[in-house]
Design a binder for these strands. Structure first.
Length: 227
DNA sequence: CTCCCGATAT
DNA sequence: ATATCAGGAG
């Protein structure tokens, strides 16, 4: 009886999950254009941008890569400079030493195994240092037009849980569950739209349920607080 | 699980 | 002040 009303929406309050097809339709109306917001021209650009995007907004990544991609055009260029120099060039994306090392390790690997090219399969991509399934899905989908999985980043994971689509927290398990529930032609665009919604409305700390058009159906919405 | 790490929102 | 940000490795 001394139940303090749940402020957090990290856990669904009702048992009914938000129907996936309804959500897809609603998100299509909300965000007609679904695309990735990282700037790039080559697959290598996107690989580097995606690695820089760890714990960093796309906006800041783009501000860094604007100059970066003019200075470094091929895998050879990234390994030709001292790590400290590359670290300085990516500094304000955070984690800059680790990212510099990771980018050089990735380029070293690409030169050794793939003649400096970015491979076009999930199997090969996840062998590249610093590339796991999330980054691989981004590269495959946006650079090569290949859809082999679903991008599970912090937004997709969080919203999938709030929508009641999954109880899992491991991104690989969330991806498997969503792949089972969604037609393949929706995989790429839905992830992009969920990311838009996660950034603009259903934010990690302060979800704006009152301005969310999915709130009525959403099991985690703070609007239908069950006394 | 921890670490990497600066910029920004709250 | 501090939580969070289009993660991944050890």
């Amino acid at each position: 009886m001394e139940d303090t009303p749940q402020k957090t929406v990290s856990t669904p309050q009702s048992a009914t999950a938000l129907p996936i097809q309804d959500t897809i339709d609603e998100l299509k109306q909300l965000y007609p254009v679904a695309r990735y917001d990282l700037d790039f021209t080559t697959p290598l650009d996107l690989l580097v941008a995606a690695q820089l995007a760890a714990q960093c907004t796309d906006k800041r990544v783009n501000s860094v890569t604007k100059d970066l991609f003019q200075k470094y055009r091929r895998a050879e260029d990234y390994v030709a400079v001292p790590m400290e120099e590359l670290a300085e060039d990516v500094r304000n994306t955070g984690f800059y030493r680790k990212k510099a090392k990771q980018i050089q390790a990735a380029c070293q690997y690409l030169l050794l195994v793939h003649q400096g090219e970015v491979p076009q399969t999930m199997e090969e991509l996840v062998k590249v240092p610093g590339v796991a399934r999330k980054t691989a899905n981004v590269i495959l989908g946006s650079a090569f037009g290949i859809v082999d999985g679903i991008i599970i980043d912090t937004h997709v994971g969080r919203l999938a849980q709030r929508f009641g689509w999954t109880q899992q927290s491991d991104p690989v398990k969330i991806e498997q569950e969503l792949m089972r529930q969604l037609p393949r032609e929706e995989w790429l665009s839905l992830a992009h739209r969920i990311i838009y919604h996660g950034r603009a409305v259903c934010m990690a700390r302060n979800p704006h349920c009152e301005q969310c058009t999915l709130a009525q159906q959403c099991p985690s919405s703070s609007l239908h607080v069950t006394q």
